[in-house]
């Protein structure tokens, strides 16, 4: 028996080591990105990175403000398009449509979540960019194009998480509301949505994280000029594109500045993650 017990403790210990090493991946990534990215920020000062408007790496000017603004603009645009469409689809499929339709469409939508982001970018480049150029003017490669493509990309995430959290609302809530004479829409608006709120918000935040972290699709449709866009038809460069566009040939301080871009992106994402975690934890507690 003692041998068995000893073996069991050994197994427990090795599994703990595995679990800790899996999680140390996060620590290693954090350390490497910060180690590479922060020295240059200290050297030039955080203000010049966060608030500087000029990105001329060859002249040692590393202002990231245009990219920070760019990332926020396209992410906000993506939410403006993805959230109403996604929420409406989720509500329609759970509350207003035939069960059969929902049973067919939910898996279809989830399958589409697997389409690689480069494909979305390509479709944007082939159809959306020329459309915007012809109908609204400008180069077509624009904040608008990036927002629409990202909005479409986050649809599957937003829809499927919203569906799950709406379905998790007990039927007795709906029955109670309908019994009081409410219409279905009143029931949805006043009973179901408030009850599903934190799950829906967590889904939106996840979609937001996906939009702000997306790289290749954005590069293909955004135009990538490192200036603060003057309108939604102007080209834009995001934090992620800034890294991907120049990493291939950057060296020295230029490369360090790209890692600094990564640090800022990392911090933004971590803040979003923590918010998403807290909201979904609150839902679980309820």
């Amino acid at each position: 028996m003692t041998k068995l017990e000893r073996n069991d403790r050994l197994v427990r210990l090795s599994l703990l080591m595995i679990a800790l090493s899996a999680i140390s991946v996060l620590a290693i990534i954090t350390v490497f990105i910060f180690e590479q990215g922060t020295p240059i920020m200290f050297r030039y000062g955080f203000r010049s990175f966060l608030l500087g408007q000029d990105w001329y790496p060859s002249e040692k000017s590393f202002g990231l403000l245009p990219m920070i603004v760019g990332s926020l603009m396209v992410t906000f645009g993506a939410l403006l398009i993805g959230v109403p469409l996604g929420l409406a689809s989720a509500i329609f499929l759970t509350e207003f449509s035939h069960r059969r339709l929902a049973r067919i469409l939910k898996p279809v939508i989830e399958l589409l979540a697997g389409i690689p982001s480069v494909v979305y970018g390509f479709i944007g480049l082939m159809f959306l960019v020329p459309f915007i150029r012809d109908k609204f003017g400008g180069p077509g490669l624009s904040v608008l194009a990036a927002s629409v493509i990202l909005g479409i990309m986050i649809l599957p995430t937003v829809i499927s998480i919203a569906i799950d959290s709406i379905r998790a609302v007990p039927d007795s809530y709906r029955e109670g509301s309908i019994a009081l004479g409410a219409t279905r829409w009143q029931t949805v608006r006043m009973v179901v949505l408030p009850a599903a709120r934190s799950g829906i918000i967590a889904g939106i935040i996840l979609g937001m994280g996906r939009a702000i972290g997306e790289t290749m699709a954005v590069i293909m449709v955004a135009g990538n000029a490192a200036d603060i866009p003057g309108s939604i038809l102007a080209p834009v460069r995001t934090l992620t594109s800034n890294i991907a566009l120049e990493m291939a040939y950057a060296s020295g301080e230029h490369r360090e500045a790209l890692f600094a871009t990564g640090v800022i992106l990392f911090i933004i994402i971590m803040i979003l993650n923590t918010i998403a975690n807290l909201t979904s934890a609150r839902q679980r507690k309820k």
Binding site: L26, G213, E214, T215
Partner: peptide, 23 residues
């Protein structure tokens, strides 16, 4: 461990790319 895994899930792929490139 769970919180770490969830954070890891949210990190954008370009950051993984940067990290893999350096390490």
């Amino acid at each position: 461990i769970r919180f770490g895994a969830e954070c890891l899930a949210g990190i954008p792929s370009i950051i993984f790319g940067l990290f893999g490139f350096i390490l």
